[in-house]
């Protein structure tokens, strides 16, 4: 069945430079630098990326950062906790707007 997403496309990510070399290369250089060990370890960055991947719900990123988190020595419990962090923030971001709704409700009510 044909779908918009093909797992094989992930391997082609590097090829985006074919249509715009300069910006593509700048992006990958930046990308590579971001994931280098710095004030945060590679492992911490992999878990952040995994959480963000779930927030943006990008199947490519989920594929890539599941593998990367495993290759950085994370186990399933740690990875699921990262996803829960994403879910908690995402859920919280909706819920906290409930305050706005409450404010408005109160403004309009007797």
């Amino acid at each position: 069945m044909e779908t918009y997403y093909d797992p094989k496309d992930l391997k082609k990510f590097g090829k985006i430079t074919e249509f715009q070399k300069e910006l593509g290369e700048k992006y990958f250089e930046y990308y590579g630098a971001v994931f280098e060990e710095g004030a945060l370890t590679k492992r911490e960055k992999a878990l952040i990326a995994l959480a963000v991947a779930h927030t943006v719900q990008c199947p490519y990123c989920i594929d890539a950062y599941t593998q990367d988190s495993m290759e950085q020595g994370c186990d399933e419990e740690q990875m699921m906790e990262a996803v829960h962090v994403a879910a908690a923030i995402r859920g919280g971001a909706s819920l906290v707007h409930g305050v706005q709704m409450m404010n408005k409700y109160k403004d309009l009510s007797m």
Binding site: T41, K42, G73
Partner: peptide
Amino acid sequence: VYNPSGAFLPPDQTALERD
């Protein structure tokens, strides 16, 4: 000795030793 429990490569040895 750590070895990956599946079809993936091992992490950085020094960082993993710390953990």
